[in-house]
Amino acid sequence: MGIRFVLLVNKQGQTRLAQYYEYLTLEERRALEGEIVRKCLARTEQQCSFVEHRNYKIVYRRYASLFFLVGVDNDENELAILEFIHLLVETMDRHFANVCELDIMFHLEKAHFMLEEMVMNGCIVETSKTIILTPIQLMDKAS
């Protein structure tokens, strides 16, 4: 499956965006998010960006106050996922112009739309920022 979930968490450990590509119940999600946040946020800058958790890996990257955490299968290319995170940030940046935590909070659905254009069923679909953003821009224009 590749990507199992994409999670955005702020420094305080509050979830800011969560997209799961396998079904988890509410309780499972809360527990998982809690565990991951505890594990990843405690790490220092010098440590590597990969954490093994349960039977998969978490690849994470920090941008200012936001942590982007991606859960992937063990055979996934961790370095490529790091690039993917960066691509997601760049895409958001292009749309929101200097994206920050508040942009994502107040435009949660747009952040989701972007992610949906990029990842489907745990696989990467599109890596061109222009193509990712086209439908969102069209919708903005229409309204």
């Binding site: 690039e83 993917f84 960066h86 890596t127 061109s128």
Partner: peptide
């Protein structure tokens, strides 16, 4: 330009 990531063309496609 569309698929360039730090000088490499579409690493995602490469990897897949």
């Amino acid at each position: 330009p569309e698929y360039d990531i730090s000088g490499v063309t579409d690493p995602f496609l490469h990897i897949r």
